[in-house]
């Protein structure tokens, strides 16, 4: 493994970023999307996306249903391909396919709304599978690390159970541990709490908040404003496949600049 050179000098195309008021500038860029376009058939889901996530930065992505948040997330580890534009991670462009892509995906952890744990494997095996099979970590070492991570997310005592025997909140915490086991450079969360019963939401958000405090780079699609205020450096608001506005959480929630953001916030705040 070649250690990637410090990305300080990484050429980043100068992009006009309307309203980059967040602290994003303080972080050197880790994930850089520029001019990204994506269609689903006739539907233009991502329109000229320019977005940069700094190392150690926590970005919350919000926007109305169908605005392209999930799609944006999924292009970063190439679960969705893009039509044009570039995405680089730590200065390296996303490989198209094959081993290089698999290796890159190992650097990008992903947590899904529906957990997606491997149903036929125990909790422990869910967490060790990636390190052992994709990274060639010795099983004993992978197990020790997995138990440490499961302990950290508070489900160590469930290690030998099957996913179906766990509550939704526990499953999602296992899914976070599974992603962390790969030692990713960045973690993507796509509505990690929207499939959970209300009483389980906080146990997952707590884990995410502590990850954020420890300096993990995160892109989080969520409508949990408490989390955004507590843990995010920047809120990015999307609508109709475009990044409409971005700002520090407090500024965004109290005084959004665009009409669309104001309209959206009034809807989610009204209940």
């Amino acid at each position: 493994m070649v250690e990637p050179a410090p990305a300080v000098g990484t050429p980043v195309a100068p992009r006009p970023e309307p309203g980059t008021a967040g602290r994003g500038g303080a972080h050197e860029p880790l994930v850089v999307m520029s001019g990204v376009q994506k269609h689903f058939g006739a539907l233009h889901v991502l329109r000229d996306i320019d977005l940069s996530i700094g190392r150690g930065e926590v970005v919350v992505l919000i926007g109305p249903s169908g605005s392209g948040k999930s799609t944006l997330c999924r292009t970063i580890n190439r679960l969705e391909t893009i039509d044009s534009g570039t995405i680089t991670i730590d200065g390296v462009p996303l490989p198209a396919e094959g081993r290089a892509l698999a290796r890159l995906r190992a650097d990008v952890g992903m947590v899904f709304q529906s957990f997606n744990l491997f149903a036929h494997k125990t909790v422990l095996d869910n967490v060790t599978l990636g390190p052992v099979k994709a990274k060639g970590v010795k099983p004993a070492a992978a197990k020790a690390r997995a138990l440490e991570l499961l302990d950290r997310v508070g489900v160590a005592n469930q290690a030998q159970k099957l996913p179906a025997q766990l509550s939704g909140g526990q499953q999602q915490r296992v899914a976070i541990a599974r992603a962390l086991a790969m030692d990713p450079k960045v973690m993507l969360f796509d509505e990690p709490t929207s499939a959970l019963d209300p009483e389980m939401i906080n146990e997952v958000l707590d884990v995410m908040t502590s990850l954020a405090r420890e300096g993990m780079t995160m892109l989080v699609v969520t409508h949990e404003m408490g989390f955004a205020r507590r843990a995010a450096h920047r809120v990015v608001f999307m609508d109709g496949g475009q990044v409409v506005e971005q700002a520090e959480p407090e500024a965004f929630f109290t005084s959004p600049r665009s009409d669309r953001a104001r309209d959206f916030l009034s809807k989610i705040l009204s209940h």
Partner: peptide, 15 residues
Amino acid sequence: VPVGQAEAARAIGLG
């Protein structure tokens, strides 16, 4: 097998 599990497998770097 839910599609999401195949995506999760790819997401942790399995070919």
